[in-house]
Design a protein around this nucleic acid. Structure first.
Length: 208
DNA sequence: GACCGGATTGGC
DNA sequence: CCAATCCGGTCC
């Protein structure tokens, strides 16, 4: 039986709650090349004008961040370091620019497709296919053409996993936000403790 | 119109 | 540890 897509109401909450609750959910991308998906094992909350680490810290929409200010449940996809795409899930009502960076997946569907998209060495393990925000976008075929995509759709969406398992949630400061003053220490990174697909090694409280 | 540096990654 | 490689944001 087809599992339903997470409803709009899931996203119309604060980013901390959504980041925590995204752990264990399945991110799915149906594309012309095929379907690829993975279980979210790591995510970070970004809280707009409240948050010096957020792209929306200025509190004013820009060309890049405008989707963050729209109603939650859309894809904020951005390009970083001249090479990589990263995916955020937007949250809260229109006018509030919060969101959640998806940082790592445990591969589920379409592992062969993920492998070919990532063009990694044959020896690499499945664990390494999507254990980072740039890697998971490459593996799932997510790029700028999905900017603003509605996550309550049948192309790019989230749903409950087929087999739900118990897990412990770890928190830590967010990674790579040393520029953000005191916000760099906010414990707004969430991950599944012990999961091998968490970025930067095992699912522990890895450093910034 | 120029300049700066990044919510990363993989290779040395 | 560090280069790769663009672009958004900022300031002139």
């Amino acid at each position: 039986m087809e599992r339903p897509t997470l409803p709009r109401s899931f996203y119309l909450r604060d980013a901390l709650s959504v980041a925590r609750d995204l752990l264990g959910k399945e991110l799915v991308h149906h594309s012309p090349e095929g379907t690829a998906s993975g279980i979210i094992v790591e995510a970070e909350a970004y809280r707009g004008a409240l948050d010096a680490a957020s792209h929306a810290r200025g509190g004013v929409p820009t060309g890049r961040t405008r989707i963050m200010y729209e109603e939650g449940g859309h894809a904020y996809v951005y390009f970083i370091y001249g090479m990589y795409w990263c995916l955020n899930v937007t949250t809260r009502e229109k006018g509030v620019a919060e969101g959640v960076l998806i940082r790592a997946l445990e591969p589920r569907q379409g592992i062969g497709l993920m492998r070919s998209r990532r063009r990694i060495r044959p020896g690499k393990k499945d664990v390494e296919l999507a254990n980072g925000p740039g890697k998971l976008c490459a593996a799932l075929g997510i790029d700028g053409t999905l900017y603003g995509a509605d996550l309550c759709s049948d192309t790019l969406f989230l749903r409950e996993p087929e087999d739900k398992a118990e897990f412990a949630v770890g928190t830590s400061p967010r990674r790579h936000v040393d520029y953000a003053g005191e916000a760099k220490d906010y414990p707004w990174r969430f991950f599944i403790v012990g999961n091998r697909c968490v970025s930067g090694g095992a699912g522990r409280a890895s450093r910034r």
